[in-house]
Structure formats: structure tokens, C-alpha cells
């Protein structure tokens, strides 16, 4: 062929399709919160599920009793959250088959969830995961995760849409951050102590009603799962629906 004049069209590289990717994720809002006490732990979440500015459902629970007195939530992209919890429940049942019905302690549950999350390191579950229960000594335990499985045990943790609103409040009210003994002129920190269940429930309700005021994706209802040595029980409170 004779010499051709270079043009934009002919310099296009062959066989490279124009990329237009399907986005496999969405954000379904909502927020969750876990607090550990001396002999109990709570895990709470609002019951609103959203997509963009639409409220999909005003009552779609996202905190679950997964068995063996462990409660779990995975907040963020709802489909991934549900899938993660279902997989954990399933594995728990196999654990029971393989170990003659032995109870899974929360430390082992926590490590296992890390593997579930990290197993999808390169196509992650888009969720912030929390579990709560009692440890081997009967003390309250909360474990929190990032989407790819990094985790730690904590006294309290907020996750989801309003985490950044609630977490500083918890730092102050649960771990007494920036609290000093009166009259010590800011020298002596307020001493740490375990909160009672009633105090914790008050904190949780305040945290959620405040988050409802300031975050559009939070509201409608608050469901709190409480783990004590007697087992798991659920409490429900209305939140504002606007």
C-alpha cells in the first residue's frame, strides 16, 4: 500500500474495546454500633435501608443472632452484608457437625470472619463488619473489621453511614476520652469503669437519635441485640422517619 496520511482513526489501537464497566456495588446506608460491658455486649443497628435518596425499606433488620450467642452485622452494601452473614452461619453449622456440637467461642468466630473477608481481598465485601458476644471469661467482647478482614477487639465501635458522627461520642462516653476529674485542672484523667447495661442502652439510643437528626440515611427504627449469659434478646425503639 502507498503511504497513508496519519489520522486519529487509523492510529486507534486494534482490539481494545471501549471500557464501560458495570458497577457491582451500591451503598445502602444505615449505621451500626457495638458496645461491650463487663458481663454483656450489645450490637445495635437502625432498620432503614436506602439507595440514593430513596428509602427502600423502613424495617429491614441488619443485626442478626448467628448462633452460639454471637451477634453479627455487616453494614454497607446490603447484598454483600447478607452474603457474608449467610456464609458465616453456614460455616458455624459445619463447625458443629465436625466438632460434635461444640460451642464456637467468639475469639475463633472473629478469626474465621477475617478469613471470609480476606478471601475476597480482590473483590471485597463492601461492608463494615461487627460481631459481639461474651469471651471465655464471660466478659463482653466486640470485634470490628475493615472490608478486607483487618480486625481487632474493642470496647466499642460504630460502623456504617454515621460512624464518623457516633464514634467520637463513644470515645468520650465509653472510654472517657477528654474527661478529667473535676478540680484537677485537666491533670487527672477520669478513671475508666465498666458501664451498666442500662447506661449502655441509654447511650445507644442517644447515639442513634442524634445520628438520625444529622444523617439522612439513618432513621425509622433501632434494633438492639443484647448478649448476656442468659442468651440473646432483642429490643426495638422507633426513630424519626423523616
Amino acid at each position: 500500500m502507498n503511504a497513508t496520511v496519519a489520522s486519529e482513526y487509523s492510529s486507534e489501537i486494534h482490539s481494545v474495546p471501549i471500557e464501560h464497566r458495570f458497577n457491582p456495588y451500591s451503598d445502602n446506608g444505615g449505621t451500626v454500633l457495638g458496645i461491650a460491658g463487663e458481663d454483656f455486649a450489645v450490637l445495635a443497628g437502625d432498620t432503614r435501608q436506602v439507595e440514593g435518596y430513596s428509602i427502600q425499606s423502613r424495617y429491614q433488620p441488619k443485626v442478626f443472632n448467628v448462633g452460639d450467642d454471637i451477634v453479627m452485622t455487616a453494614n454497607g452494601f446490603a447484598a454483600d452484608g447478607a452474603a457474608l452473614i449467610d456464609r458465616f452461619k453456614n460455616q458455624l453449622q459445619w463447625y458443629k457437625f465436625d466438632h460434635g456440637g461444640k460451642k464456637l467461642n467468639i475469639k475463633s468466630a472473629a478469626r474465621y470472619i477475617q478469613h471470609l473477608l480476606y478471601g475476597k481481598r480482590f473483590f471485597p465485601y463492601y461492608v463494615s463488619t461487627l460481631i459481639a458476644g461474651l469471651d471465655e471469661e464471660g466478659k463482653g467482647a466486640v470485634y470490628s473489621y475493615d472490608p478486607v478482614g483487618s480486625y481487632e477487639r474493642e470496647q466499642c465501635r460504630a460502623g456504617g453511614a454515621a460512624a464518623s458522627l457516633i464514634m467520637p461520642f463513644l470515645d468520650n462516653q465509653v472510654n472517657f476520652k477528654n474527661q478529667y476529674e473535676p478540680g484537677s485542672d485537666g491533670k487527672k484523667k477520669r478513671e475508666l469503669r465498666y458501664l451498666t447495661l442500662d447506661e449502655v442502652l441509654e447511650l445507644v439510643r442517644d447515639a442513634f437519635s442524634s445520628a438520625t437528626e444529622r444523617h439522612i440515611q439513618v432513621g425509622d427504627g433501632l434494633e438492639i441485640l443484647i448478649v448476656t449469659k442468659e442468651g440473646v434478646r432483642t429490643e426495638y425503639f422507633d426513630l424519626k422517619r423523616d
Partner: peptide, 8 residues
């Protein structure tokens, strides 16, 4: 299409 579910 994302697998998101909810009831109401």
C-alpha cells in the same frame, strides 16, 4: 441486579 434485597 446487584443482589440487594428488602421487604416492605
Amino acid at each position: 441486579l446487584l443482589g440487594v434485597t428488602y421487604g416492605a
